[in-house]
């Protein structure tokens, strides 16, 4: 029993280790510091988004809009930084510092998250539909804001966020790691975190215990929006360019990370650290397949089967859940 439960408990880590060992035998470029940082830097955006996605899914919701919110927030930050707000007819011009532009991007992400939460709690729009609508709304807004062209040339200060190093560790990894630590503490050690699990576990019991269901849900979608914006700013900074089609289908990678990490789509069960492991598995797999020169088409197929495998294992471990 003990060996079995231990195996089940650490199945993601074990899978990750096995994957790393196998890949390091198959390619001598895999187990190098450069490749390690590379993987970490690449998954940092997905981890940012997936923290928010985990919270949303723990409440038995879903957020399909994170990819589009990422694009819009990144574009807004880039646009504010490069062009400011310029309304000649009113003789108005507001310039933005790097800090101000970032705040603007985060504000947009948070605002769209609030809107999602508001639709879901106030008008009882199912999360799938509300965030699907936001997916196209935010993407359309990104096109409007950028006119369909990338915003580039954002300067060295802004680029530091995505490409800089601090104490020998890439900045995106710092940002993501700090967010992960905060999220782990919040989910395990605070009232807010406990309420998220309670709402996902049994919303009706949570309501009858006097929990502020709507408030918690609005916050969760808001946080998901803000974290998507963080991802958008990191991505924009790393590429030195806000692409109108940035973050396309990122919501699916994010859901994949959450699911591989063992969080139940029926809510109430899962963890931030699980999601980080899920994102690592996807990142390591991507990197390994690239190093092994596997065609991108096959990469997608393999990723699909990994998701299925993860969920099948989860089913076996939790047979009695809906």
């Amino acid at each position: 029993m003990n060996i079995k439960t231990t195996l089940i408990r650490f199945q993601s880590i074990i899978a990750l280790l096995v994957l790393c060992i196998v890949l390091s035998f198959m390619s001598d470029k895999f187990l190098t510091p450069e490749n390690g940082w590379n993987i970490m830097r690449q998954i940092s955006v997905n981890v940012c988004i997936s923290i928010g996605m985990t919270l949303v899914i723990l409440t038995r919701g879903i957020d399909l809009s994170v990819g589009s919110i990422l694009a819009l927030s990144g574009a807004v930050a880039a646009g504010l930084l490069k062009y400011g707000i310029d309304v000649p007819s009113l003789n108005l011009f507001i310039g933005f510092t790097v800090f101000g532009a970032i705040l603007g991007g985060l504000f947009v992400g948070g605002g769209l998250g609030v809107f999602n939460g508001w639709m879901i709690t106030k008008f009882k729009v199912p999360p799938f539909v509300a965030t699907l609508a936001m997916l196209t709304i935010a993407r359309g807004a990104t096109m409007l804001w950028t006119g369909g062209f990338p915003i580039t040339g954002l300067g060295a200060h802004f680029a530091f966020i995505g490409t800089g190093w601090f104490l020998g560790i890439p900045m995106p990894v710092w940002i993501t790691a700090i967010l992960v630590v905060i999220a782990v503490i919040v989910t395990n050690k605070t009232k807010f975190g406990r309420y998220i699990y309670a709402i996902g576990g049994n919303e009706s019991a949570a309501r009858l215990s006097g929990l502020p269901i709507n408030k918690i849900k609005i916050w969760v979608y808001t946080i998901a929006g803000i974290l998507a914006a963080v991802g958008g700013i990191i991505l924009t900074s790393r590429l030195d360019s806000a692409q109108p089609n940035a973050g396309f289908s990122y919501e699916l990678d994010s859901i994949a990370a959450v699911v591989i990490g063992g969080t139940s789509l029926s809510g109430g069960r899962g963890s931030i650290l699980g999601t980080v492991q899920g994102a690592l598995i996807i990142g390591v797999l991507n990197s390994g397949l690239v190093l092994l020169n596997v065609s991108p088409f096959w990469q997608q197929i393999i990723k699909g089967f990994v998701i299925l495998l993860a969920v099948i294992l989860d089913r076996i471990n939790h047979p009695n859940e809906e």
């Binding site: 699990y197 309670a198 576990g201 049994n202 009706s204 019991a205 949570a206 009858l208 109430g268 069960r269 859940e321």
Partner: peptide
């Protein structure tokens, strides 16, 4: 079960 407890907790 429906309204009183979060059974998974």
């Amino acid at each position: 079960k429906k309204d009183g407890l979060v059974l998974s907790m």
